[in-house]
Design a protein around this nucleic acid. Structure first.
Length: 609
DNA sequence: AGCACGCCGACT
DNA sequence: GTCGGCGTGCTC
């Protein structure tokens, strides 16, 4: 009989399987992990195909990593589609969604992944953050039926980061699949979940294809969080992969966020997603303080010190939010931001080059000396950074202790966590318990609105909403801004999400941004600027002429004199964009020369940097 | 991605 | 004469 051959994919950037001979007596299946010699070393790969063929000088597989597959047929299909949609290799995609390999020789129970027969899928749902609390209680009581509307089944929760995964696992007494847990515990949760024990598992991106017996519920926590799509392969948003998975296996999909991505809100306006509106809960007073013409010398308008005093009197803490950097240019008198006339995106300010450039289309302009809207001369980029705000605050409130919130990881525990006033970026608001603050002040919301990214408004709105949720209903949110009438501010004042999403979706539709069109960034790094430029122009040339897509001019990113020059260009296109650009770019992407430059393709970038 | 093989400059 | 730099190409 002709020997049994398997095709195995590895964590390599090459989109090709490698063939091996299966030794007599070794039972193997698709989706199973094996150790096989590659490059003279044993490496872990996933079997994607079995066939009978002549083995002409093929190496044999060394061993199976587990006695059962880690991926079901449905998960393999989902991964294959995901890899194609993100222009990544199947091997690196599967590797990113695999449990850690076992310690050698350690025997452990392992259940195979349940196969599902996709039935009719329920419409995915978009839930406000308020509701998981209800759901969580039901889950703990083994009464999932009440809120989930079906007999208790298994559920997978995908969190944006390890810290969030840990907290949710503790609250739900769920198994942990994320890399913050020990490998043994992760493996126990992975293979246990396949048999429904534990019934609830929590993980991060790496858990997106974890096995669950049907009927399963898939939950994406903090759906809007950019951490659901980190840069680099597999270049895919957890939301999209989870949606594909839910469709493939007929699972119920819940997207959870108090401030959903505009993409999801837009889909919920159609019938691809069902939105559930919460009854409005208690809401603090949100005040817009107009800073036009008055924020030059002091960072605090009248309402802000008053809010700080009230909060201190009430014994509650205050958070002051500053922008880390404002990379764009605005007018201090009328509040106008210099924007690209074609793209609507704030123009990025480069001090070194003394120029404004559009990150999307690459259009460049010299620095203006006056505001085209009002003629004012007071144009500024740097708003109020942490240091300047801290100094002003200490001067104004000498008796109050003021702390700076650093990056969560680097923060020293001793840096006065109980300080009544904390200054930080909007990331600070994620760590604050709901309703626990006396006041939040945005020193200059414009620093957020000026970010040279079409999602600047969305991020500002999400920060404002998070601030209102972090503040006690008797407290106050003070928003100092040159744009007190901005619809993101208005939505926060009125506690009305639609006030933001309505105009924002209109803006996205008019200028062709997600969810109406897909974006892609093609970038090139090379040893020499000329080589990088030549390669990006070659990419542009092979992309031009594809029907239905827009290729923007290539532009140099980053510092002008970077050691490794980087050029990139932005593409806009329809939903099938990855399929359209795959073939034309393939020869350029496969040519992997270091000095001559390497091509990287980032589908659906979550930041335009 | 790793890792080997290959072709040009300074060392025992 | 070789040791070793990186640049290019292959991995069942």
């Amino acid at each position: 009989m002709t020997p049994l051959i398997v095709d195995v994919v590895f964590d390599l950037p090459v989109d090709r399987a490698f063939s091996y001979l299966v030794p007599e007596g070794l039972g193997v299946a698709r989706g199973q992990r094996v150790r096989a010699p590659l490059h003279g070393r044993l490496r872990v790969g996933v079997i994607v195909e079995l066939r009978r063929d002549e083995a002409t000088g093929l190496q044999p597989i060394r061993e199976a990593v587990e006695p059962v597959p880690v991926f079901s047929e449905a998960m393999l299909r989902t991964a294959r589609r995901a890899a194609a949609d993100s222009l990544s290799s199947l091997g690196s995609t599967l590797a990113a969604f695999s449990p850690p390999p076992p310690r050698r020789g350690g025997a452990e129970p392992a259940a195979p992944p349940p196969e599902v027969t996709p039935g009719a899928q329920a419409t995915p749902e978009l839930w406000p953050e308020l509701w998981p609390e209800l759901w969580m209680d039901a889950a703990r009581d083994e009464r999932l039926t009440d809120t989930l509307g079906r007999e208790s089944g298994s559920a997978l929760l995908v969190a944006p980061d390890i810290g969030s995964a840990r907290r949710w696992a503790e609250r739900l007494d769920a198994g942990r699949l994320d890399s913050g847990a020990h490998d043994d515990a992760r493996r126990a949760a992975w293979f246990g979940a396949a048999r429904g024990r534990p019934r609830l598992v929590v993980g991060t991106r790496s858990a997106l294809l974890a096995p669950l017996p049907p009927p399963a519920t898939l939950v994406l926590l903090d759906e809007h969080d950019a951490a659901h799509k980190p840069p680099g392969p597999p270049r895919l948003h957890s939301r999209e992969l989870l949606a594909a998975r839910a469709a493939a296996e007929g699972s119920r999909l819940l997207l959870l966020s108090a401030t959903p991505s505009v993409e999801s809100w837009g889909r919920a306006d159609g019938d691809a997603l069902r939105r559930r509106e919460p009854a409005p809960g208690p809401w603090p007073e949100v005040v817009a303080a107009d800073t036009r013409g008055i924020l030059r010398n002091h960072p605090l308008t009248l309402p802000l010190p008053r809010a700080i005093e009230d909060a201190a009197r009430g014994g509650r803490r205050v958070a002051l939010i500053v922008a880390r950097d404002a990379a764009a240019l605005g007018c201090d008198d009328c509040g106008d931001i210099f924007r690209c006339g074609d793209c609507g995106v704030a123009l990025a300010l480069s001090r070194a080059a003394r120029a404004l450039t559009c990150r999307l289309c690459g259009r460049g302009e010299p620095l203006p000396d006056r505001c085209p809207a009002c003629g004012g001369h007071r144009l500024s980029a740097v708003g109020w950074g942490v240091e300047r705000v801290e100094a002003s605050l200490r001067k104004r409130f000498p008796r109050l202790s003021v702390a700076r919130a650093g990056p969560a990881r680097a923060r020293r525990p001793a840096s006065d966590p109980a300080a009544p006033v904390v200054i930080g970026t909007s990331a600070l608001l994620r760590e604050v318990p709901r309703g626990s603050l006396g006041a939040v002040g945005f020193v200059a919301l414009d620093g957020l609105l000026r970010q040279p990214d079409f999602r600047a408004g969305e991020r500002a709105f999400q920060s404002l909403w998070a601030a209102a949720e972090a503040v006690h209903p008797a407290g106050r949110v003070v928003v100092q801004t040159l744009h007190p009438d901005h619809y993101a501010v208005r939505a926060a004042i009125l506690q009305a999400r639609q006030e933001f999403y309505g105009p924002e979706i209109k803006f996205r539709a008019e200028l062709g941004y997600p969810p109406f069109r897909r974006l892609c960034i093609v970038s090139v790094v090379a040893g020499e600027d000329a080589a990088a430029r030549a390669l990006i122009e070659a990419c542009a040339a092979s992309l031009r002429g594809i029907g239905g897509i827009d290729v923007y001019p290539a532009a140099r990113r980053g510092a002008p004199a970077a050691r490794r020059p980087r050029w990139s260009l932005v593409i806009k296109g329809p939903a099938e964009l990855p399929r359209l650009i795959d073939e034309p770019l393939r020869p350029l992407r496969e040519r992997r020369r270091r000095r001559g430059g390497m091509v990287e393709v980032e589908m659906d970038p979550v930041a335009l940097a």
